[in-house]
Amino acid sequence: MKKLLIVCMLMTIGFGASAQFTLGPRVAITSTNLDIRENVADVKSGDAEFGFQYGAFARVKVPIVGLYVQPELLFSKTESTVTTNTSTVDLSFNRVDVPVMIGGKLGPLRINAGPSFSFLTSAESDVAGTVTDIKDNYSDTTVGFQAGIGVDFLKFVIDLKYEGSLSERFGESITAGGATFSTDERPSQLLLAVGFKLF
């Protein structure tokens, strides 16, 4: 995992010498729906909930091949709700996400896709005001993918992307509200992101 991140960073630095470079802040709204591993009696996930991301992006255009590489460093927060037979369980996850998008232009649109590396920093469950640390139930690192379309308008960078996972995402069983279930801390989600080119 670390070797792959280093390779991506070196690619970005190497391309920068002969390509146009862009850097700026980035924020995103996410729509997430929690997954439950198996059917458990009287346990179900709630409706999709909104989360957010903030951080920075860089873009390196490679004129020779007509593509660009866009690494991002984002701090993400997602929340989900699980309803059991006796109560409602609120789950929250904080992560550092590092997507590395590779894309090109098709008319005014950009089309891009690439791997997304995720590092879990905290995970908590809240049952009737009692907060429990559940980070140890999940993997510290997961690998996913992102794919989507985007457009540049003046200095704004706008993207609509879908994110899925390429690695095991489910955690160990959680007991809350009188029920035991396994959840996914990195579910599939839609992202609407806006960046601003500083230069």
Rank of each mutant, 00 (worst) to 15 (best):
Q70C: 05
G104Q: 02
T81C: 07
S92I: 00
P115Q: 04
K77Y: 11
V89E: 05
S87Y: 00
Q70D: 07
R59Q: 01
V100L: 00
E79L: 07
V100G: 01
L74F: 11
D97L: 07
R59V: 04
S116V: 06
R110G: 13
K77W: 09
K105E: 13
T88E: 08
N94G: 06
N85M: 04
P115T: 03
S87P: 03
F75Q: 12
N94V: 00
I111Y: 10
V60Q: 15
Y68R: 07
R95L: 02
Y68H: 12
P99N: 03
K61C: 09
F117D: 00
N85Q: 10
I102W: 03
D97H: 01
P63K: 13
S116G: 05
S92F: 01
V89C: 00
S116D: 09
L74G: 13
F75P: 09
L73A: 15
K77H: 13
N94P: 00
T83I: 08
R110C: 07
A58H: 01
K105R: 13
N85F: 05
S80D: 11
S116I: 02
K61F: 13
G66F: 13
G66D: 12
P115E: 04
V100H: 02
T84Y: 06
S116F: 03
S80P: 03
D90T: 05
Y68K: 08
I64T: 14
S80K: 05
L106M: 14
S92D: 09
K77F: 10
E79I: 06
T88R: 01
R59T: 03
S116H: 05
L109Y: 11
G66I: 10
V96Y: 09
T81L: 09
L74V: 11
F75M: 14
A58Y: 02
F117K: 02
G114Q: 05
I102R: 01
R95W: 08
K77M: 11
V60K: 05
T84N: 08
K61L: 09
V98Q: 02
S92P: 04
T78C: 06
A58D: 04
V60G: 11
T81I: 05
G66P: 14
L91Y: 11
T86Y: 07
T78P: 08
G104A: 14
V69S: 12
M101C: 03
F117W: 04
I102P: 01
L67K: 14
T81M: 07
F93K: 06
V98F: 06
F93V: 08
L73M: 15
K105I: 00
L67S: 14
T81S: 14
E72Y: 05
D97G: 02
P63V: 10
P99A: 03
G104P: 07
